[in-house]
Write a protein that binds this DNA or RNA. Structure first.
Lengths: 346, 346
DNA sequence: AGTTAGCACTCTTGCCACGAGAGTGCTAAT
DNA sequence: ATTAGCACTCTCGTGGCAAGAGTGCTAACT
């Protein structure tokens, strides 16, 4: 589609612009890379690249800036995605080992590490499971008319809620309820509980209702809940020198529901997807690029992680990093939370 | 200390400046409030106020701006702290009822509501308890060599961790361990467990170690963990028109550990404390004011909440709001989490 | 044909001057 | 004690101007 020389030139322009954020001129690039052509030749080539839409002028007599199409061509054809260097991998792994054992903490950490590694903002959704099953239920008295309901779900999730009873309730009653409901509902999903024909006392019914609601909420959750990190990385970039720009991106990232702007649902079921500038659905995202990947386990835990930044982004490095962290996260989840998955790959 | 008229003038200047963020001139204020004096008189009075350090000039021939001392005098002597209007209270209460029953969720919500109400940033720490006691312990198998350890602590806290055993472990062994450790450790603190003389098998010892660590971590936590909300409110204010200012406050609020900048530990044990500008310990906070209050229960749950914003702040409204939300939060915690407190007050 | 030197032209950016507007401090009169 | 008046100061927005960087085009060179 492009001559060899033009491709290479595009590559250089993108490289230079990504680094410096200033439009790159013909003269500048010749001197910078000691090209065996004069700036005039480069100017001619640039004119052709512009004609075909790979680069553009902010205005006459400024240097060239890659267009969305230019970046897309680069990502598709020019960039060689190389594996992350060993030491980068090691650093990331190391940071992960700081984490405790709570799933949310992992997700949060993944966002932080990703954001730091690619120097942009990162979003990681809390993974959702397929309809979760109840593994154990506990009631712990905290007052005569109140108890703490603790649910252990499949895949090592724990949920809790304080229950207030309409009348004082004895410790023995509480443990009776616990035993009965455990016997009745263990291994069941929220839907099962709704349709259950079990004979329940009024108190038991009250507890069962709470159980059902908590489980339903846990199933629903997922893509709506996400951790965002590295906003500062984005704000720092020269494209946000003015305060309006800053506020607008801040709104985008914090106010609005990020999960609506990023096509977590439509991305290919595995591998990294890149959305560049106007390729994004939402108008507000037209100046930004998103690099997104799903992660999860064969057993049905699934989440997604994304990097968000200006279209001027190191696509190669970003894609590698997202891929690596998504894989790492998947692996960790499989090992710790979903070992009884249908197809394990260690 | 100040003549009546000067006090009132100071009050007007502060009111006007807080509203508009532009230095207030003698002429402007006379016209704005229809004062029965000429601007010349006001100029004389302003000169005196400046001499005594209550207001200052950004430069010759700009209007006056309140100084830290001016704000302090205002807060101490001039401002009448009136109760929040009923409807404001109602709105806040209403927002609180959206919450679920998890403590962290409450804290997060408190920060969000506070930030919105006072149009500034708000920080609320996760409350810490006095040395927490174990109420119940559960082990749920999730794999032959792994189990989920769930701890229920006093005051309805739940902690969890995945445990990996060095060898496969039978379900009966697991429940035996659970029973034994429950019998041994219920009602005990982390310190008790360390000094326990109980005879434990190797597996039990492994679990006990984890229990002790989790509890110790829970006790340690608290002031270090906090929710921050409303950064945008602060960034929007005219004092942050330039992007450097924006970045600097962003760093202050997000990068650094907020709990180090805000004197949560030194504040009076009850009631609202106000730190204005240079009164703050940390140099970086010299342009900001902090309104902070502890909250908690007589039973020993205790946290703190703070509003952070430029010194140009509606102190009256902010103080009332912080007081109200701190009280509300205390009340809710007492009702739901700490009903067996030594001195209950409903 | 591909490449290059040269040149006129364009557009941004920083700088300086300038005037309008807002505010001050002081003096003298009320 | 208050006020009118006035000279003075400082900010801020505007417009002009020169420097710098880059472009597009033409004509010459290999």
């Amino acid at each position: 589609m492009l001559t060899d020389r033009r491709s290479q030139l595009l590559s250089l322009i993108i490289g230079e612009y990504v680094d410096t954020a200033i439009p790159v001129g013909s003269d500048a690039i010749v001197r910078r890379f000691d090209l065996p052509f004069s700036s005039a030749t480069i100017r001619n080539e640039m004119a052709r690249l512009e004609e075909e839409g790979f680069i553009s002028h902010p205005h006459t007599s400024a240097g060239r800036v890659p267009s969305d199409k230019g970046y897309r061509y680069y990502v598709e054809m020019l960039m060689q995605e190389r594996d992350l260097p060993q030491d980068a991998k090691q650093t990331i792994r190391h940071q992960f080992h700081q984490a405790g054992r709570e799933e949310d903490e992992w997700v949060h950490l993944a966002a932080a590490v990703l954001a730091r590694s690619v120097e942009n903002a990162a979003v990681v959704t809390v993974p959702r499971t397929a309809a979760s099953r109840l593994k154990r239920l506990e009631l712990v008295a905290i007052q005569d008319t109140a108890a703490l309901l603790v649910l252990v779900l499949q895949q090592a999730r724990v949920k809790q809620q304080v229950l207030i009873f309409p009348e004082p309730i004895a410790a023995e009653t509480l443990s009776a309820i616990t035993m009965h409901l455990n016997a009745e509902f263990c291994g069941h999903t929220a839907a099962d509980i709704v349709h259950s024909q079990a004979q329940l006392t009024q108190m038991e019914w009250l507890v069962a209702t709470a159980v059902r609601e908590i489980m339903a909420a846990a199933d629903r959750g997922g893509y709506d809940e996400a951790y965002l990190e590295g906003v500062r990385n984005v704000l720092q970039k020269p494209e946000f020198a003015t305060s309006e720009k800053m506020l607008s991106i801040l709104d985008l990232l914090e106010q609005r529901n990020l999960t609506k702007l990023i096509p977590f649902r439509e991305i290919s079921t595995d591998g990294v997807t890149v959305m560049i500038g106007a390729e994004n659905e939402d108008d507000l995202m037209h100046d930004y690029s998103v690099v997104v990947s799903p992660y999860g386990t064969p057993g049905g835990i699934s989440g997604a992680m994304a990097v968000v930044g200006p279209t001027r982004m190191r696509y190669g490095q970003t894609i590698s990093t997202v891929r690596f962290i998504a894989d790492l996260m998947s692996e960790m989840l499989t090992t710790y939370y979903d070992p009884d998955a249908p197809v394990g790959e260690k």
